[in-house]
C-alpha cells in the first residue's frame, strides 16, 4: 500500500518531468463569463448543437465551458470568478491509458492529447476517466439544418454518432501556422496565431502560446504570475494555468 511519503515522491518526479509544448493562461479575474469563447469554439471546431432534450440528459456538447461556483450560505452567497474549462492537454493524461482502441493518444510532435475520430469506437472510458470532465460524446447524429452546414470549418473533421471529442487546442490552426511559417522559411512567431477561444475573448482573458519557449507571452505570464493548475495533485501535468484573486 502506498504511503503519503511515497505519493510525495511520485509528485516530485512528475513535476520534474518535461513540460508541454503548447500552453494556455486564463485570467479568471478578467473573464466576464460572456460565453464568446464557447460560441467561437463551437463554430471553429464544428461542434454540434445538441438541443434541449439531450442537454437535459447531460449530453450537451462543448469543448469549452464556463464553470460557475458559489461561496457561502444563503442569503450571503458570493459568486467566485468564472472558470473557463477545457481540455488541459495533460502531459500525463488519464484519458489515454484507458482507451482500448488507442484513439486518444499523446502527440510526440505537438505534446497534445489527440483524439483520432476514425479510431474511436465510443467506449466512453476516456470521458469517465477525465478528472476535468471536458470530453463530450456524440450520442446522436445531431441535426444541422440549412444554412448551418455552410459555416462548417473545412479544416476540422465533422464527427458522427458514437465518437468522442474534445478540445484540440485548435490543432488545425497550429498546423496552418507551422505550414505558413515553413513556406516562408521561418519559425512560428509567438502571437502569430491563437486559438478560437482566445481570439474571440473580448477581455483577452485567454492567452495561448508555447510554454517551452521562455520568451513567449504565456511563459512570461506563468513566470511572473501566481497561477494554479487545476487538479495538479493528481499528477496529470496540465498545460493550462489559471490566475485568480490577483
Amino acid at each position: 500500500m502506498a504511503t503519503v511519503t511515497d505519493l510525495k515522491i511520485t509528485e516530485l518526479k512528475l513535476s520534474e518531468a518535461e513540460g508541454g509544448k503548447w500552453g494556455m493562461v486564463i485570467d479568471q479575474d478578467i473573464c466576464t463569463g460572456c460565453q464568446a469563447c464557447v460560441a467561437a469554439c463551437a463554430m471553429e471546431n464544428n461542434v454540434s448543437f445538441v438541443g434541449d432534450v439531450d442537454s437535459g440528459y447531460g449530453r450537451s456538447m462543448h469543448w469549452i465551458r464556463i464553470e460557475r461556483f458559489w461561496e457561502g450560505e444563503y442569503p450571503e452567497v458570493k459568486m467566485t470568478p468564472n472558470q473557463p474549462m477545457m481540455c488541459q492537454q495533460c502531459g500525463s493524461a488519464t484519458c489515454e491509458p484507458v482507451c482500448p482502441a488507442f484513439a486518444t493518444v499523446h502527440s510526440q510532435a505537438e505534446q497534445l492529447n489527440l483524439q483520432v475520430y476514425n479510431r474511436c469506437v465510443g467506449t466512453r472510458y476516456c470521458a469517465n476517466n477525465c478528472p476535468y470532465q471536458v470530453r463530450s460524446f456524440n450520442w446522436r447524429d445531431y441535426e444541422r439544418p440549412e444554412p448551418l452546414p455552410n459555416q462548417l470549418n473545412p479544416d476540422v473533421t465533422v464527427r458522427t454518432r458514437g465518437v468522442m471529442e474534445k478540445c484540440t487546442f485548435c490543432i488545425q490552426r497550429i498546423h496552418k501556422a507551422q505550414d505558413n511559417a515553413k513556406a516562408e522559411g521561418r519559425e512560428v512567431v509567438d502571437g502569430e496565431f491563437t486559438t478560437a477561444c482566445a481570439q474571440a475573448c473580448p477581455a483577452s482573458a485567454i492567452t495561448f502560446g508555447r510554454v517551452d519557449d521562455s520568451e513567449s507571452l504565456v511563459s512570461q505570464l506563468i513566470k511572473h504570475g501566481h497561477g494554479v493548475k487545476h487538479l495538479e495533485e493528481l499528477g496529470t501535468l496540465p498545460n493550462v494555468t489559471y490566475f485568480k484573486g490577483g
Binding site: 510526440q108 505537438e110 483520432v116
Partner: peptide, 12 residues
C-alpha cells in the same frame, strides 16, 4: 519521424 508518424499530423 515523430512529426510524420503522429496521428495529429493528418487526423484532427
Amino acid at each position: 519521424l515523430n512529426k510524420l508518424a503522429d496521428c495529429g499530423t493528418c487526423h484532427y
